[in-house]
């Protein structure tokens, strides 16, 4: 976590925080209260998604007639469903720095800023095959995808397809997923839970690359050669996923007495 000087400036970014939360303990205590009050709403979304996917997973297995892992949901083992205190502080500072305001914001303004984070709550649905991602999306958003998660949580903005949508595919990043932010009512009004759906390989790439993401988010450069090579890795995994899904479909057909 960044340090602040006597006047409340975040030393690295020169951003002024409200006086009530300039001290580290005060900031932590304030954010933890906020997290506490929205936690149950986020857990509820997570529970609903897990319950829906439990049922859908059984349907997939029944259709295929094979036993296998279809998907899992992160946070299921208690992994944090909420952005950490440090990550919240970091995001506040980034947003304040981007806003370039002269006066420090009020505590209420910062509070509203945090509650508006689209990834204040977040979890991931990690699927074995690319086809499973599509099945999960159908289960969660309907067919065609609607603007409500499970028919009850409104989606803020659009459902983003970082795999196929050329508008969204970033030439310098290998992050590939379907994702959206669902709004849920909490004690503090609506808060957002970001749900990402991706394959095992996309998740593996993302996990491996997280330190790189942190590095570049801080504005630090990497050589072009390195970036090209690393994005190429992600695209290679796309091909692997694509072929693996085809192979699997063929395998299921063979098992079920289909053409060889």
């Amino acid at each position: 976590m960044n340090e602040t000087n006597d006047r409340g400036f975040d030393l690295e970014t020169k951003v002024m925080l409200p006086p009530e939360i300039r001290g580290d303990p005060e900031f932590r205590s304030w954010v933890e209260q906020l997290r506490m009050s929205v936690m149950s709403a986020v857990v509820q979304v997570h529970d609903d998604v897990m319950a829906a996917l439990d049922d859908a997973g059984r349907k997939v297995l029944a259709a295929e007639g094979r036993k296998r892992d279809v998907w899992f949901v992160t946070g299921e083992d208690g992994q944090s469903l909420l952005k950490s205190v440090a990550a919240i502080r970091s995001k506040i500072v980034r947003e304040l720095a981007a806003a370039r305001t002269e006066a420090p914001p009020t505590l209420d303004e910062v509070r509203r800023m945090v509650l508006a984070f689209h990834d204040l709550g977040r979890f991931r649905v990690v699927c074995t095959h690319a086809s499973d991602v599509q099945a999960a999306i159908r289960e969660l958003l309907g067919e065609p995808p609607r603007n409500r998660l499970l028919g009850k949580y409104p989606i803020a903005g659009e459902v983003k397809d970082y795999v196929h949508d050329l508008r969204l595919r970033k030439p310098k990043s290998g992050h590939r997923a379907w994702q959206f932010a669902a709004a849920v009512e909490s004690n503090d009004g609506p808060v957002f839970v970001e749900v990402q759906l991706m394959t095992l390989l996309q998740n593996a790439w993302d996990r491996r690359n997280h330190p790189v993401y942190e590095w570049t988010r801080e504005g630090k450069d990497l050589p072009d050669r390195w970036i090209i090579s690393d994005v190429a890795l992600a695209e290679t995994l796309y091909l692997v996923d694509d072929q693996a899904a085809r192979n699997w479909a063929e395998f299921v057909a063979i098992c079920n007495g289909g053409a060889r």
Binding site: R35, M39, G78, S80
Partner: peptide, 22 residues
Amino acid sequence: VERLNGIARQAGIVGLSVDLLA
């Protein structure tokens, strides 16, 4: 979670942190 957190808040423990843990 909501009920438990409400109780924890009322208990007024100094320096209380709360988190969902792995």
